[in-house]
Structures are given as structure tokens and as C-alpha cells.
Amino acid sequence: MANKLESTLKNMILSLFLISMVMSGALGFVYVVTKKPIEETQKKAEIEAVKNVLPEFDNDPTKDVKDIDGLKYYVATKSGEVVGCAVKTYTNKGFSGHFEIMVGFKPDGTIFKSAVLDQKETPGLGDKMKTKWKDQFNEKHPTTFKLAVKKDGGDVDAITASTITSRAFCDAVTRAYEGYMKNIAKTTNQ
């Protein structure tokens, strides 16, 4: 320890300056190296989410995303023909507030499938919406299948002990459906 640097002002500034320089250099390097993989991972996750809720398609729906009123629309086509549209939607009525789901619609507005993206509902209760429960929406058209829990006069079986989450899920799907019919269905069906 004999040759340890003294705490003079010059030494302190010099040593901190050098350490910061080297460290930010290292960080910058790692940032540049990981930048591409991070983007690829995020894109892959996005495409994966779209794939989960739509029938087979062969375009890249993430290329031409429409962002209207806070909802994101991914239009999928197969050999040029529109096969469906995935809508990234949200609700603020969950038991823990905000959560996001992805709903796939066929061109006529029938729900194909849905997936839960980002949620913090109560584990074991509200987060059961991730399970088979959400399959009851599949292949239903919101004009004939009322998007509300049975307690409120709708057609949806609520999750046991999680009516609030179930209502919120319906809210998110309704928002996606209305947005889809208003913004996307018109343009793609012409």
C-alpha cells in the first residue's frame, strides 16, 4: 500500500476522469455490439405475438404498423390478400390498472385468437386470463357475442373470483374491435 496515490486534488480529478473515460468507452462498445441483437429480439417478439393471434401469413406485418389512438394495428396478408389484422390494445380497468393484450381479427371482424402481452394482475386469480379462459373469445363475432361478463348481461364467462379482470379484458377487446372496424376494416375490405 506504500505507493497508493495521495488524495490531492490533481490525483483525484485525474483518477476519476480516467476511470470514467475507460468505463464509458467500454459501455459505448457494448452498446454498439448489442444494439442490433436487441432490435432483432424485440422485432422477433413482436412478430411472434402477431403470429400467435392470426392465421398463417407471409408478409412482415411489423413493417407497416398503424398507430391510431394508442392502439397498434398489424395487417397481415397471404400472397397479397388480407387474412387478418392483429390489434395491440390495452385497458386501464384491470385489478392492478393497466394491461395490454393482442387480439387478432379476421377481415370481417371475427375474433381469431387473443394473447396477453403485459400484465400484473394477481397471480393465480386475475392472471388466469392467460390460460384457456381467453379461448372462449375465439371465432366469435362481437355483433353476435356480447363482449361483457354474464353478470353484466353479456356472453363471457368470468374468471372465478376475478370479475374485475374479466371485465377489463372485455374492455380491451371491445376497444380493439371498435378501433379495427373504424380504422382498418373499411380500408382493407374495399
Partner: peptide
């Protein structure tokens, strides 16, 4: 546990 009782208080 007691504080969990407050969850869902604010929508």
C-alpha cells in the same frame, strides 16, 4: 398482507 387489502382501490 394487510396492505394487499387495498389492492383494486383505485381504478
Amino acid at each position: 398482507l394487510a396492505f394487499m387489502g387495498f389492492s383494486g382501490l383505485v381504478k
